[in-house]
Amino acid sequence: MQRHQRGYSGLQISLHWILAALVLFQLIFGESMTAVVDAAEDGLQASRADLALGSAHYWIGIAILVLVGLRIILRLTSGVPRPADSGPAWMSAAARASHILFYILLAATPILGLLAYYVGDPFGEIHSLAKPVFTLLIVLHAAAALLHHFWLKDDTLKRIFIPGV
């Protein structure tokens, strides 16, 4: 059963935006890890930039895994605001489904990345599939938030910026 609260807490909002920034970094600079792995497989040395960004990709992936664990714990213990009543029922179902998919991706992608790093393929290939899925989900998530704000004129978007709304 889902627990509901008036609005997101400051900690929940902070975790949302920290995770968003970390995922964005991973999506933009994640190819450096591929360059490092490919260079190692070919017996070559990756560039200093790729080594630095590859290392950052590794540690940020671990940070994402830890922070999403914290976010899930907070969600289970503190609850979340009730969904906006504006819009058709399918929108609420889509919102629930997209949030579940986000949590699955946020947990599974770093785990698959670690398995790819320490075990190898096929985990690397599966891990790389997360990028287009994340990208599509982020676009849909942002579009839905803007739709709620500008078309449905509810507080959905405000809730992820202002605690307690």
Score class of each variant (00 low, 15 high):
residue 1 M to Y: 10
residue 2 Q to P: 15
residue 2 Q to V: 15
residue 3 R to F: 14
residue 3 R to Y: 15
residue 4 H to T: 15
residue 4 H to E: 15
residue 5 Q to M: 12
residue 6 R to F: 10
residue 8 Y to V: 06
residue 9 S to T: 15
residue 9 S to I: 09
residue 11 L to W: 11
residue 11 L to P: 02
residue 14 S to C: 00
residue 15 L to G: 00
residue 15 L to C: 00
residue 15 L to A: 00
residue 16 H to C: 06
residue 16 H to R: 03
residue 18 I to N: 00
residue 21 A to W: 13
residue 24 L to P: 06
residue 25 F to K: 06
residue 26 Q to A: 13
residue 29 F to L: 14
residue 34 T to S: 01
residue 36 V to G: 02
residue 37 V to A: 05
residue 38 D to V: 15
residue 39 A to C: 08
residue 40 A to Q: 12
residue 46 A to V: 09
residue 47 S to D: 08
residue 48 R to H: 11
residue 51 L to S: 14
residue 53 L to C: 12
residue 53 L to A: 12
residue 54 G to L: 01
residue 54 G to C: 11
residue 57 H to C: 05
residue 57 H to R: 04
residue 62 I to D: 14
residue 65 L to K: 03
residue 65 L to W: 08
residue 66 V to G: 12
residue 70 L to I: 09
residue 71 R to S: 05
residue 72 I to W: 13
residue 74 L to H: 13
residue 74 L to A: 07
residue 76 L to C: 12
residue 77 T to Q: 13
residue 78 S to Q: 15
residue 80 V to D: 08
residue 84 A to K: 04
residue 85 D to Y: 00
residue 87 G to E: 02
residue 88 P to S: 12
residue 90 W to S: 13
residue 93 A to W: 12
residue 93 A to E: 14
residue 94 A to M: 13
residue 95 A to K: 04
residue 98 S to K: 05
residue 99 H to M: 09
residue 101 L to P: 03
residue 103 Y to T: 09
residue 103 Y to E: 06
residue 103 Y to L: 13
residue 104 I to N: 01
residue 104 I to G: 03
residue 107 A to H: 04
residue 110 P to H: 03
residue 110 P to S: 10
residue 111 I to A: 15
residue 111 I to T: 04
residue 112 L to R: 01
residue 114 L to N: 07
residue 116 A to T: 00
residue 116 A to N: 08
residue 119 V to W: 10
residue 120 G to W: 03
residue 120 G to S: 09
residue 122 P to I: 08
residue 122 P to D: 11
residue 124 G to K: 02
residue 126 I to L: 14
residue 126 I to F: 05
residue 127 H to V: 06
residue 129 L to T: 13
residue 130 A to P: 04
residue 131 K to T: 14
residue 131 K to P: 02
residue 132 P to A: 04
residue 134 F to S: 01
residue 134 F to Y: 11
residue 137 L to K: 06
residue 139 V to I: 15
residue 140 L to H: 05
residue 148 H to A: 05
residue 150 F to D: 02
residue 151 W to P: 05
residue 152 L to W: 03
residue 154 D to N: 11
residue 157 L to S: 04
residue 160 I to E: 03
residue 161 F to C: 09
residue 161 F to K: 00
residue 162 I to E: 11
residue 163 P to D: 13
residue 164 G to T: 15
